[in-house]
């Protein structure tokens, strides 16, 4: 199901999956549910996090100086 959702199936496999989905309400429901899940997971990327670049850079400078 995830392969279908991600577009990772070959054409013949995709067609077979689509035929099955036409006939199987449970799988249609699962697909819709997974599609909703994946769509919302992608939104987590936009969630703000503490900016750390300046602090990390200072530590990296120190590490490079110490160890080369």
């Amino acid at each position: 199901m995830s392969d279908y959702l991600d577009g990772d199936l070959q054409r013949s496999e995709r067609q077979r999956a689509e035929r099955h989905l036409d006939e199987c309400p449970e799988c249609r429901e699962l697909l819709a549910s997974l599609r909703g899940l994946v769509s919302r997971l992608a939104r987590l990327l936009a969630e703000p996090m503490r900016p750390v670049a300046a602090t990390v850079l200072a530590g990296v400078r120190e590490g490079i100086r110490a160890g080369g």
């Binding site: 995830s2 819709a32 549910s33 997974l34 599609r35 909703g36 899940l37 994946v38 769509s39």
Partner: peptide, 21 residues
């Protein structure tokens, strides 16, 4: 990946989530 998604779906509940945004 699929097992992770299915497990996550189980943890979060199955909906109603509606269609993807």
């Amino acid at each position: 990946l699929h097992r992770g998604r299915m497990a996550l779906r189980g943890l979060i509940g199955q909906g109603p989530w509606g269609p993807p945004e």
